[in-house]
Design a protein around this nucleic acid. Sequence first.
DNA 1: TATTGTGAAGGAATTCACAGCC
DNA 2: GGCTGTGAATTCCTTCACAATA
Lengths: 213, 213
Amino acid sequence: MARPKKIPGTTVSRLSVYVRALQKLRNEGVVTTSSEKLAEQIGLTAAQIRKDLAYFGQFGVPGRGYYVENLYNEIATILGINRRWEVALAGVGYLGYALLAYNGFKKQGFDVVIAFDKDPAKIGQTWEGVKIYDVAEAPSVLPESGAEIGIIAVPAAGAQEACDAFVSGGLKSILSFAPGRVITPPYVTVKRVDLAMELEWLSYYATNAGEHG
Amino acid sequence: MARPKKIPGTTVSRLSVYVRALQKLRNEGVVTTSSEKLAEQIGLTAAQIRKDLAYFGQFGVPGRGYYVENLYNEIATILGINRRWEVALAGVGYLGYALLAYNGFKKQGFDVVIAFDKDPAKIGQTWEGVKIYDVAEAPSVLPESGAEIGIIAVPAAGAQEACDAFVSGGLKSILSFAPGRVITPPYVTVKRVDLAMELEWLSYYATNAGEHG
DNA sequence: TATTGTGAAGGAATTCACAGCC
DNA sequence: GGCTGTGAATTCCTTCACAATA
């Protein structure tokens, strides 16, 4: 399944945006759209969208545009979200619990099926239908859980331990909310989200008002 | 306070990363560092770091490197985080509450000082020392709260209303966790974080294994 | 000697513009 | 006529390489 050209990371991030836009159109019963209309809806240029899609194939009809349902399916397939993903969660504090209960994940096909913590008071309990295990048990219980993606929502100090446990359990894709880098083998993909950094970004633009973002 | 050149957005995002690295070095008692050492610590190239800093001035000593404390202060000033920021929160559900209780914000100087919700059961209560108001009250109570940044943690359906309330209350910087775009006047900066999109990014790389991210 | 700061070179991503197709 | 798909042009970002400096 070799892909012709090398795909820019920026293009990949935009695919999710396209998927959201197409989901919205589909819910509204719109059957066809165009790169121009999508661009306006999303806030990009039409050429950008066509270029992005061109990396993966030809999905449109010249003179007509794109069929919403069809384009949605194509991009969902490219993103690998035309299926369910089982997800493991490390850290059932406030943030972890919020993620556990978050509907936005389920809606996009991501199901938290197993959770881990270090707090003895939580271990063994079942929250939102998800059983909580000791982090140390991860290597043994993860493989049979079906989880392929891990989310780290523990305090900074425990991030590496949680990450190691995930990797030992066979996970190759990890989303980390802990500030700071975690060290992993090269075959593991880690995506970091640092909430404070997002606020700092706003702080910069609020402080240096003028250059719009 | 005009800035000589136009600053790439990529550079701004990296400033936060530099700040984290410098905070870490400072905590470890390290006095000086170099672009080379920082680059290794962070996972970038030394030239990149020097180029980024060059947009804002000359902070290093040729042959010596950078003074950690000094460089930290310089970048913190550029980012506008050498001060406290008061923050307003819309939506005290699971996610909102997690953000309310999140220590990572306080540690970086962001203080949630006021919260909003639409649930009558929550309105009027005080959680984590933060009083919860009706969203409709935002225009009247926000100005005297001191908040300059707003965080939207409400379900998608309420995002625009929360956003409008923030804007009416005078906020110009908004961090939104709601999926989908919110419409604002051009002088308002909105930064969106879509948690499901981050998972989709992982899904892509897990599905199309090979091209590393 | 070690390391910065920066002009120049190189590479990547975006935008332009239009041939080709419906 | 309208719109896609794509080579070419352009803009933006990163890396290189070295003169300047402590």
